[in-house]
């Protein structure tokens, strides 16, 4: 009997997250983590960012970005632990920690963005 597997769904999330991460994270990180703090490019003002994040479309974008990127991490990191460190005996624990972490982060992102004023 073939067991119903949720692996295809998890893989699809990993894949979608991989595309999302590849296209937008490098520029976000370069600006937020290096160019703005080091003063290479003038940082956007608090008011500008506030106005930007108040737009529902921005919040939807940020939510999808967090959600997909976290599930991308969960899937890939799970297999890194399986293959890289060969800790298959902790299968269930790793599964719960990875996807649990991704769900926690997604809920947190949803909470922060939904209540953003």
């Amino acid at each position: 009997m073939a067991k119903q597997s949720n692996e295809p769904v998890l893989w699809a999330l990993f894949s979608a997250g991989g595309v999302m991460a590849a296209f937008v994270i490098p520029v976000h990180l370069f600006l937020l983590g290096l160019a703005f703090p080091l003063g290479w490019i003038p940082a956007p003002s608090y008011e500008h960012l506030l106005a930007l994040v108040r737009l529902p479309i921005t919040r939807l974008y940020l939510f999808v970005l967090c959600f997909l990127a976290l599930f991308h991490w969960a899937h890939r990191f799970r297999y890194t632990l399986y293959d890289g460190l060969q800790i298959k005996h902790l299968n269930e624990l790793i599964f719960v920690c990875c996807y649990g972490g991704a769900i926690f982060g997604t809920v947190l992102a949803g909470y922060l963005l939904w209540n953003f004023r």
Binding site: I25, L32, A69, W73, F77, A109
Partner: peptide
């Protein structure tokens, strides 16, 4: 690299 993708989400949040 996935760990660093997750770190970026932390900074963003």
């Amino acid at each position: 690299s996935s760990v660093f993708v997750a770190w970026f989400v932390v900074v963003l949040l």
